[in-house]
Design a protein around this nucleic acid. Structure first.
Lengths: 348, 348
DNA sequence: TCGTACAACTAGTACGTACAAGTGCTACGT
DNA sequence: ACGTAGCACTTGTACGTACTAGTTGTACGA
């Protein structure tokens, strides 16, 4: 652990310069090119030499320089991922992207969108880092701004607010998911089923449409009732308070997503309304929250792993297979029944 | 929007090569070096030329190449941030790091720790990208593994599980925070105050200690009662169930963090226990969850913006001011009183 | 004996930018 | 008229790696 004997300039910090391939080459007594070969696992070096190179690398504490690699390589094999950390389901997708990308020999680069850092800046960063494609999770961008990005690199929009041309889209058949929820509730005997809307959030329009259609199909057109919301817990809580203040109380609610379902559920609990005895609640996304034992939210599952897999695949198809036409990939959702929904009670 | 007239090789994708400074230089009729000057906003170029360079850059759709900049520059001015997305409070800190770093003219690079990607790999990535320092949020790493990292770059541990030498630590005075919680509850008349533990999670040991000390100070040694947990919602729910099954029911609970408080609170609500009428609950972290109207959790605030600011500052001190001694930065927490705590009811 | 084939290597250059060290050119003071 | 200063620019090289096009040396077949 003693400092290297090398008499480098003392520098301000005293931290020695990081070793390069040339340093390894010098130590082993070969050329830098050969060291490069060894690290890339290419043929052209003897077993003996390979061993010595790795040994020397270990001793020197060598670490490949990503910047140099990126600069030199023709392909960066990097996928840029734009995300926020606010929605649990988005976090799940980000996590799932790592193994999905790795399977295709791509590398994931994250760029967070936060309050002080809008989507444009985040994209700039990714493109500056030579990402070959951009995956955007739940974007709020306008189609024309996204189009600009798509002009520079293939874009895959995962659950976007609005569909846009010039890019691939991966999303779930939200209408179908909501229909399953309605089917489930009607089977349990419910008729007064309310929907809490997600406003302009990703998928909200389709979920709303799916709700309307499914209700009509069950002959429940007169029970259609949509309460405005925006996918937040607070909007769910607000909806619950509105319902409590109202004289026509439904027997079931389909929330726009799990977060609003959470606000709804807890507000009901606080008010002494029992779930599912007094009212059944269905969420959407099957996020981590839904699975918690004390929440036990019946929800519509959108498989994060599958979404990630397909998104990466879409990007790879453009990058490696030369596809140039847009793809709209729609996944079938699945209803996950938990404890927040139950048989309609005869006295309700 | 028509494709450039340039007859580049058709390539597999047909996407044209990205323009470089030399392309701009050629178009304007100056040298690449001058273009570099202009972009770095250095003196040595006429106003007229600057304008023309920017114009040409715009027309060509030029974007600086981060890899090349990184490779050439002596300093990368990048701070690597290791984080998970599982704890809301950590997310807050990540968000706050952006403006804090920007203020010091540093750039933030994220590296997520997820199931399929351990801390070691995430650090490798950051160091490979020439990050000058590493900020780790809520690390679970062992001190000796961290020491290895610290050998390569300054490390700032934000709310680490355990303190380690060779790096800076930014944390809150957790014992003090819990003491405030105990003070608050005793003022409200509570005596049977239980603590739900965080096991080996960051800060848990100190919170436990703070609880014990504060209870004794209030002459409540006999009421000390610690229920095991691990900061998860489920552990909070489990604790609630345990308490419900038990014949000695406390009048107040201090949870190890907001997540476990959440599990506790909701499980109580489901069981018909009213909060705060039947029992008062205090969380820790003052995360987004705590502030939700239907949760309204009294919690101990750890200011994310301040934490971020100090963490960046600690790194900068090492990098720019040559500090080599360790710093242990302790922030004072503040109790945020909400609706989950209330006066002890006489009939309790 | 020579040519050939192959393994194991090296030389050299390119990637796009930053930066040090120049080179002209004009203006200006004496 | 001459020296000098300063502006606006250029030349050249370095950063660390990848990759092409060699170059050596040895074994082997005819």
């Amino acid at each position: 652990m003693r400092d290297a004997e090398e008499a480098v300039q003392p520098g301000i910090t005293g931290r020695q310069k990081r070793p390069t391939m040339s340093d390894i080459a010098a130590r082993v007594g070969v050329s830098q090119a050969l060291v490069s070969l060894v690290f890339r696992n290419q043929p052209g070096a003897s077993v003996r030499t390979r061993e010595r190179v790795f040994e020397a690398a270990e001793e020197l504490g060598y670490r490949p320089d990503t910047a140099a690699q990126l600069l030199r390589r023709t392909r960066s094999r990097q996928l840029g991922v734009l995300f926020t950390m606010r929605h649990p389901h988005d976090v799940d997708i980000v996590e799932a992207l790592y193994p999905a990308a790795e399977k295709q020999d791509y590398h994931v680069v994250l760029s967070a969108m936060v309050a002080t850092r809008d989507e444009r800046r985040a994209v700039e960063e990714l493109l500056g880092l030579r990402c070959e494609a951009i995956l955007i999770i739940g974007t709020e961008s306008t189609p024309d701004r996204l189009a600009v990005v798509a002009g520079e690199a293939p874009v895959v929009a995962i659950n976007p607010r609005k569909r846009a041309s010039g890019m691939d889209v991966v999303r779930t058949a939200d209408a179908k998911g909501v229909r399953q929820a309605v089917d489930h509730l009607t089977e349990l005997g419910h008729r007064a089923i309310v929907h809490i809307d997600g406003g302009s959030m990703p998928g909200a329009a389709e979920r709303r449409r799916g709700y309307r259609t499914a209700m009509r199909r069950h002959g429940l057109a007169e029970h259609i009732r949509i309460i405005p919301g925006d996918y937040t817990e607070e909007s769910g809580a607000r909806a619950a308070r509105d319902l409590l203040a109202c004289d026509t109380f439904p027997t079931a609610v389909i929330a726009g997503n799990d977060r609003s379902a959470h606000g709804l559920l807890t507000t009901f609990l606080r008010a002494g309304v029992r779930v599912p005895d007094d009212i059944s609640i269905v969420g959407y996304d099957d996020s981590r929250l839904a699975g918690l034992s004390f929440i036990g939210l019946t929800s519509v599952r959108q498989d994060a792993a599958e979404v990630a897999e397909l998104a990466v695949q879409a990007a790879v198809e453009r990058l490696d297979n030369g596809r140039t036409t847009d793809r709209d990939i729609v996944l079938d959702p699945a209803l996950v029944v938990r404890e927040s929904t139950g048989q309609l009670r005869s006295d309700a």
